[in-house]
Amino acid sequence: MLINGKEKVLACPTTLSELLTQLGYRAVFVAVELNGTIIKQADFSSTTITDADKLEIVSFVGGG
């Protein structure tokens, strides 16, 4: 699969929520595009990710 343009191999299909946790993201602070479609945060735990998918993950950062 591709995550932000970099290849990553998944051992098995997983949910988007689990994958974000494994990658160190906090779901409330990200937006995710899966194969060209924006995924709602409410759907993260029910969305299955496989090796054939392409993800773009954008983190929100505060500062000033």
Rank of each mutant, 00 (worst) to 15 (best):
A27F: 06
A52Q: 12
T47G: 09
T21G: 00
I57D: 03
L19R: 00
Q41K: 14
V30T: 14
E56M: 10
T21K: 05
A27R: 07
I57S: 08
D53K: 01
E33P: 01
G36L: 05
K40I: 07
L23D: 09
E33S: 00
D43L: 07
A42W: 06
L20H: 04
D51Q: 12
T21R: 04
F44M: 03
I57Q: 07
L34W: 05
T50E: 11
L55I: 00
D43T: 10
D51M: 08
R26K: 08
I57W: 09
L55A: 00
K54C: 14
Q41T: 08
Y25L: 07
I49P: 11
G24N: 03
A27C: 06
V30R: 11
F44R: 09
L19A: 02
V32D: 11
N35H: 01
K54P: 00
F44V: 00
F29G: 15
I39G: 14
A27D: 13
V28G: 08
L34T: 10
T37S: 12
L19E: 01
A52K: 06
L20Y: 03
V28Y: 08
D51S: 09
E56K: 11
L34P: 08
I49V: 13
Q22L: 04
I38W: 05
I57K: 09
A31P: 02
D43P: 08
I39V: 15
T48C: 12
Q41G: 13
A52H: 08
R26M: 12
E33V: 13
T47N: 08
K40A: 11
L23A: 03
G36H: 03
K54H: 10
I38Q: 05
E56R: 05
T47I: 04
L34E: 13
I39T: 15
L55Y: 02
E33R: 03
I49C: 07
T37I: 15
Q22M: 02
K54R: 14
I38Y: 05
T48E: 15
T50Y: 00
V32M: 06
K54I: 15
R26E: 08
E56L: 14
N35Q: 02
V32Q: 04
L19W: 03
A27G: 07
N35P: 00
T50H: 09
S46C: 15
T21L: 06
K54A: 15
V28Q: 08
S45V: 12
L23S: 13
A27I: 02
R26H: 15
Q22Y: 11
S46D: 09
D43K: 10
A52R: 13
F29S: 08
A31N: 05
D43V: 06
A52S: 11
A27K: 06
D53T: 01
L19S: 02
A31T: 10
A27H: 15
Q22C: 02
A42R: 10
I39W: 11
Y25T: 09
V32Y: 00
Q22I: 00
L23Q: 15
T47H: 03
D53N: 06
F29E: 13
N35L: 06
G36W: 01
V28S: 13
T48M: 12
D53A: 04
L23K: 14
V32W: 01
I57H: 12
T50L: 06
S45Q: 11
T21D: 13
G36E: 08
L20G: 03
L20D: 01
E33Q: 09
T37Q: 10
Q22S: 06
Q22A: 05
G24D: 05
Q41L: 03
T50W: 00
L19Y: 03
L20R: 03
G36K: 01
I38S: 08
